[in-house]
Amino acid sequence: MEAVKRALDKISVERIKLELLGNAYNSSSTVLGRLDPRTLLIWYLFFAIVPWFMHNRTILLGMFILMAVCTVLARASTFIIFILCLGLITQVGWMFLLSLFFGGGGESVLPMLTLTLKLSVISLASITVFSSLDPERLSDGLSALGVPDAFAFSLSYGYRILPTLLEEFHQILLSFRLRGLRPQKNGMLYWRTAAYYLRIIVLVFYPLMLNTAKRSRTTVEALETRGYNYAVNNPQVKKLKLSYLSLKPRDWMFAGVTALYLIALFTLGTAFPELIY
């Protein structure tokens, strides 16, 4: 179980910078990425809520197919989808096994399948939408839909500050390692090594808190000189900032296609509620 060590290696500054930030801003090239963020968010809202209250399996399956197509269109990373599947399988799998233990039988598979279907539709919807929106467009979309400006600002600030924080974290961690002593033996299941790393990761936050405190002070002071407080909750500034958002024909087309599909699906679903099982 070198997992801890490997995970730590993964937390290399460069890697996270490349993987996360590079990908985050790389989404506007897809079909879905060119849609208006508001369209995508409203679309998402529908598919995040409605499935919870659907018990019609045909409709759920139809939605699942739609989501699968959209996920492909959004070119979501396979890694994320893999994680999603793994999570679903373990969660639902354990529930199923335990319910057998409590006296259930094979018949509990079907309701569980329905649950899985619902969860997949919802998760795929979120993957589709959020991997199609780069942080800027997401925050603009949110603020257009009335989410407080502070959140929108924090979102892009997060992307700004992450590499700096990681760098600093990395440096301090290195200082701990350069002056610390790794356990001589790994211990059973590498627990000594794991404990050593977890301990210093926690300890790193002590200096990091102090350093970040200093940093935050300058940042907030600089925000003052850069007119941030002038802009907060100033509707005019917001309008100016969001003026580039516009619903284009492709947004209407996307909404229209989804609506048509859903109408057809609901008709089919009511006619044959148990098309599959």
């Binding site: 319910s99 409590f102 006296g103 259930g104 309701p111």
Partner: peptide, 9 residues
């Protein structure tokens, strides 16, 4: 309706 599901959850 599903035996044991509530308990397991």
């Amino acid at each position: 309706a599903v035996q044991g599901l509530a308990e397991s959850v």
